[in-house]
């Protein structure tokens, strides 16, 4: 009986942790996607300083959550996101033509990460 109670408690703990992980990753990924959209809108409207501020804010936010994500998610994807996010500020500053493709790539990686952590039918199978 003790084992069954322990097993039940462990399962409930795992469930709570999974829900927390899923909600956290979903929320942060949506913020990253919103940031990428804002950066592109500001850049295309000519507000380079605004785009740079947004990019800087994105990088700061990422540095805060990166460590936490490393415990929950495969590091391969996180390394890719890290690489892209670290470049965005400089691409905006240098008015680079690669900015749009990098922002698109970041959005795709973020969506992929979110899909992997959200228990939908397609992501489970």
């Amino acid at each position: 009986m003790t084992r069954m109670i322990m097993s039940g408690c462990i399962l409930v703990t795992l469930l709570v942790m999974s829900i927390f992980s899923s909600v956290t990753v979903d929320r942060n990924c949506r913020e990253i996607e919103r940031s990428t959209e804002n950066i592109w809108e500001l850049y295309t409207s000519g507000d380079i300083q605004g785009a740079k501020d947004e990019a800087s804010g994105l990088e700061t936010r990422w540095e805060k959550i990166h460590g936490r994500y490393a415990v929950l998610v495969n590091n391969g994807r996180l390394n890719e996101m890290d690489r892209v996010i670290s470049r965005i500020y400089y691409l905006v500053e240098n008015d680079s033509r690669e900015l749009h493709s990098e922002l698109t790539e970041l959005e795709h990686i973020s969506k992929g990460l979110r899909a992997g952590e959200t228990p939908k039918l397609m992501s489970i199978f």
Partner: peptide, 22 residues
């Protein structure tokens, strides 16, 4: 593979064992 977090191994092991006990 050190790119895989430890929790990714811990969670299925504990889950499977708990399912088996229940």
């Amino acid at each position: 593979d050190v790119n895989i977090p430890v929790i990714v191994g811990v969670t299925p092991i504990l889950a499977l064992v708990c399912f088996e006990v229940l």
